[in-house]
Amino acid sequence: MNDTPPGAGPVLDVRGVVKAFGSNVVLRGVDLSVEEHRVVALIGGSGSGKSTMLRCASLLETVDDGQVLLDGEDVTDPRVDADRVRRRMGVVFQAYNLFPHLSVLENVTLAPTVVHGRSAAEAREEAHALLARIGLAEKATEYPDRLSGGQQQRVAIARALAVRPRLLLLDEITSALDPELVGEVLRVVREVAAGGMTIVMATHEMGFAKQVADTVCFLDGGVVLEHGPPAQVLGDPVQPRTRQFLARVIDAGRL
């Protein structure tokens, strides 16, 4: 089931999303529009709402106010079957979250067979092709705990891609990795982006955001404070808060 997009509107359209956990208001009206084949990077300090925003977009959290539209359909409507919506998205998490009791191959074929009803043979074939693409063809029968963090995260990307998603959401996928393993994961993301995938990624890798993203959004205090082309937001930000944030990042040697 490959839903073709209706019309030429944005793939993801987040409108005025508000989200609070108890008395802690994390998102105070976030707007974000992502066109097809575009890569959007979300940057901002910890607690700025990047992850929460992605969890709302992937319907892992319910929003308190506002709307999330996927291909023009309001998926935050309570009458919408959230399980059917999640099928159309791929999510990669900071801590990989591979299923430890399943082999690498089974991790990748699970959703295609169980959720999308593809035949086991077709799913396996496709999974092998994906694993070859990320350079882990020979690890198909291994279990996740035998893999390095970088390898696990590449498998997690393959698992998300196996459902042929309309949209890929990456939640700080290199933050839990040792520095020397970051490169191999970013290489895979760059390749996926070059293949035309629509991507929203929360990231601390400013250099990577600069190279790969079409748009960079700076989140601060639960709103998108500034957004634009990477050269502008990262090179010549308008907002003082953005400048402060980038100065701290440069101090830490991350840009």
Binding site: S58, L60, D83, R84, R86, R87, R88, M89, G90, V91, F93, A95, N97, L98, F99, L110, A111, V114, V115, H116, R159, A160, V163
Partner: peptide, 15 residues
């Protein structure tokens, strides 16, 4: 996080 990963793939609560 295991449940979150499963649900993000489109699996239902039961699955």
């Amino acid at each position: 996080s295991q449940r979150a990963a499963a649900r993000s793939l489109g699996l239902t609560h039961r699955q």
